[in-house]
Design a protein around this nucleic acid. Sequence first.
DNA 1: CTAACTGTAACTATATTGGTTACAGACGAT
DNA 2: ATCGTCTGTAACCAATATAGTTACAGTTAG
Lengths: 162, 162
Amino acid sequence: MSTSSRFAVAVHVLTLMAWADEESLKSEQVAESVNTNPVVIRRILCELAESKLVVSQTGAFGGSRLAREPEKITLLDIYRAVESPGVFSLHRHPPSSRCPVGVNIGTVLHNVLGEVDSAVEQVLSNITIRDVVARLRPCVSSSSTLVKKKNGTRPQAVAVRN
Amino acid sequence: MSTSSRFAVAVHVLTLMAWADEESLKSEQVAESVNTNPVVIRRILCELAESKLVVSQTGAFGGSRLAREPEKITLLDIYRAVESPGVFSLHRHPPSSRCPVGVNIGTVLHNVLGEVDSAVEQVLSNITIRDVVARLRPCVSSSSTLVKKKNGTRPQAVAVRN
DNA sequence: CTAACTGTAACTATATTGGTTACAGACGAT
DNA sequence: ATCGTCTGTAACCAATATAGTTACAGTTAG
């Protein structure tokens, strides 16, 4: 239904950052994992930064990291940060004002779709990035180990050999 | 989020038909209430007919009417008939297979989005067209009266003077 | 100062939706 | 039988949204 992958990408990005712990990630590293262009990532990172979910630093050795602990970032926060609100759209053009159904269907639909949106938000508000990481971990087999830099000043790509 | 108004239009269409009771409506009448082109309506009617929510008749004095009572048509039926499933989309291109997060985020997102979809379906399954009509009726002031044909063979537009 | 980042504009490609015209086929009325 | 009035559907266009891409100004660590 939705033609946008922004929510999925944003969750992916924040999960990467939770996975990378305190280490800040460059847009190019993230783009490699998401398999897209760094500018696409930076656009989403800007929206996430506006919603205070990440902090970014410009300049050499800059990058982005989570603005708070993973357990304090819900999928609802992310949804609100990167998607336009409302699961469904109403009519493109307002219905006829000469028809009793046409005049009032908008109000009824507005109420119904409000219930739908609430249900979605309810689900999203109960899942945090920490939960996503927890759900992710069992999927990562023991042969997959995250390459973490130890003391280099140049963070390596968040990647795994296998 | 959604860029399609098909669900809203489909609910509008079926509500009109419930309002019109047994009387069959022509796509042009419906289009007038929805404020769009009759072909747009017929396209949606075809999908609704495939899902056995309406029956249409070709030929002179044809038209469409509900295939069953309004209380036996839920918004979930309509949603499934006219929208592609899934509230959110996943990544356009599959993420990197060289990153432990990239490899498995799809599975986790699939589960999460499944929960979201279930919540939406739960809400929609508990609302019928009969409920929509019931919610609509109080909005229609007493000055707004539906013009119903009494015995003519040519149904008039579902419209109201005011 | 320089190298390496982010933020952002501008442009393109692609996809989806809806609006429109046109017409074949169905079917009731006469 | 044929005529007028419908639906079903193809074909096309316009509008919109998304994301991919290039380019570059501005920021910052060293």
